[in-house]
Write a protein that binds this DNA or RNA. Sequence first.
DNA 1: GCGACAG
DNA 2: ATCTTGTCGC
Length: 235
Amino acid sequence: MKPLEPAPFPRPAGVREAAAIQRALRDRVILEGELSVVRYLAALDASHPTRFSKVQGASVAAAVLWDRQEGRVLEVATASVPEAELFPYIPGFLSFREAPSYLAALGRLSRRPEMLLVDGMGIAHPRAFGIASHLGVHLDLPSVGVGKTLLYGRPEAELPRAAGSAVRLLGREGPVGWLLRSREGVQPLVVSPGHRVSLEGALEFVRSLLGKTRLPEPLRQAHVHAGEARRTLGG
DNA sequence: GCGACAG
DNA sequence: ATCTTGTCGC
């Protein structure tokens, strides 16, 4: 990250403190904005070695800088954080486990992206502050969450089978995201705004990145590279 | 108390 | 997330 050093990402002592941090930061989320003019984005995904692998367990992250205009990968950066430093995986608190390695990978890109596409939830989260929102607020960047399974929210209606169809996800106080059928016959993606983007803007942006596979292409690339990086390290 | 539970 | 080959279905 060229412009400025990212603020340190605090590691909570437990879920109690983690939840308090989420509740304290969620009010900073801005659910407005549109991303149609974004050209350079960073897609983030992580891979984790099983315990008892060659190297110590770790979170291996990949940040893929994607050129939306050219429709191709410009740059790939990876980074890992030792298991000993990681917060455990607890549903609802994913950001405290994976954000540190994501931030490290992002810091190795030659430039700051215009927005972040994150594997996980935005506001479709029990406390409206999933990992996409957390990273977006932390770095003051627009962000969108793309999850593979549902964590929070109820589909407003039955999702049509056709590729590209979407239905809203409803939380307690209103819509929190979308179920998006990225391809015909596949399990839907969970799309939700992270930060500085509207509900509709998040959906349209993800739609613009869909290719021939279930996941939007930048995230699929990040997934592949995170896995390769992990195996290269002996995981 | 019971069920749910991103990666 | 990870352990894993071939196989069924669009």
